[in-house]
Amino acid sequence: MSAFERTYTVRWADMDPNGHMRHSAYADYAAQHRIEYLSANGFTLPYFAKAGLGPILFREDTRFLKELHINEQLRVTGELAGLSADGSRWNIVHTLYKPDGRPAATVSVEGAWLDLRTRKLTVPPADITALMGQLPRHASYKDMVRGGGGE
């Protein structure tokens, strides 16, 4: 699949007292990108509510490379860094780009799917696993193996 990209404008609410985008706003744009990818492919928030399913994060790591400033256009991409065979676990690397194309940050997330009724980890429907597998592969991509932990 070709890259799924979105462009946003850095807002006043994203700013910190140093005059650049606050650290947590980078994660907010990465999360927005993931939700828009799912939604653009038919997996909207109402779908997830009805299915009793939701994505959750285990880890989020942000690497800050260049400052972003108010009213700058920011382009966000997402690449798959890992996926378990059953689709229950996934890793995505988001890159946030400055208007000149230089990376401003990377946001790497490790996640899974939660059954919202039982509050336990679950395997998503096959069509969600297929969609996740269509994301472009990040250079660090590795197949994931389920196991261990409190599943």
Rank of each mutant, 00 (worst) to 15 (best):
P46E: 07
Y26C: 00
V76D: 01
L135W: 05
A112I: 06
R119P: 02
G78I: 11
A126N: 10
G87W: 01
Y29D: 00
V93D: 13
D28R: 12
P136F: 07
A51L: 12
L45K: 03
L38W: 04
G133W: 05
A126I: 12
E79D: 12
R102A: 15
R137Y: 12
G87V: 04
Q73G: 10
R34Q: 08
A30W: 01
W113A: 06
T122M: 07
R102Q: 15
R59C: 03
P125C: 10
Y37Q: 00
D61Y: 06
K120D: 12
L74G: 03
A112W: 01
I128A: 11
P99Q: 12
L131T: 10
I70C: 10
I70S: 02
E36A: 13
A105G: 04
E60I: 13
Y29I: 02
T77V: 12
V109S: 12
P124Q: 11
L65I: 15
A126K: 14
L74K: 04
G133H: 06
K120G: 04
Y29E: 01
E60S: 15
V123S: 10
F48N: 01
N91Y: 03
N71C: 14
L53R: 05
W113F: 13
P55V: 05
A112S: 14
H138E: 08
E60T: 13
T44M: 04
A105T: 06
P125A: 11
T118G: 03
Y141T: 12
A130C: 00
T77M: 06
L131M: 08
G52C: 03
D127A: 13
Y26M: 00
G133A: 05
D28Q: 08
R119K: 15
A104Y: 05
R119Y: 12
T62K: 05
T122L: 03
I56D: 11
R63Q: 14
V123L: 07
Y97M: 08
S84F: 02
D100S: 05
I128W: 05
I35W: 06
D127I: 00
S39T: 15
G101M: 09
A51Q: 14
V76N: 04
N71H: 15
T95G: 07
I35N: 05
F43K: 03
R89G: 08
G111L: 11
D100V: 07
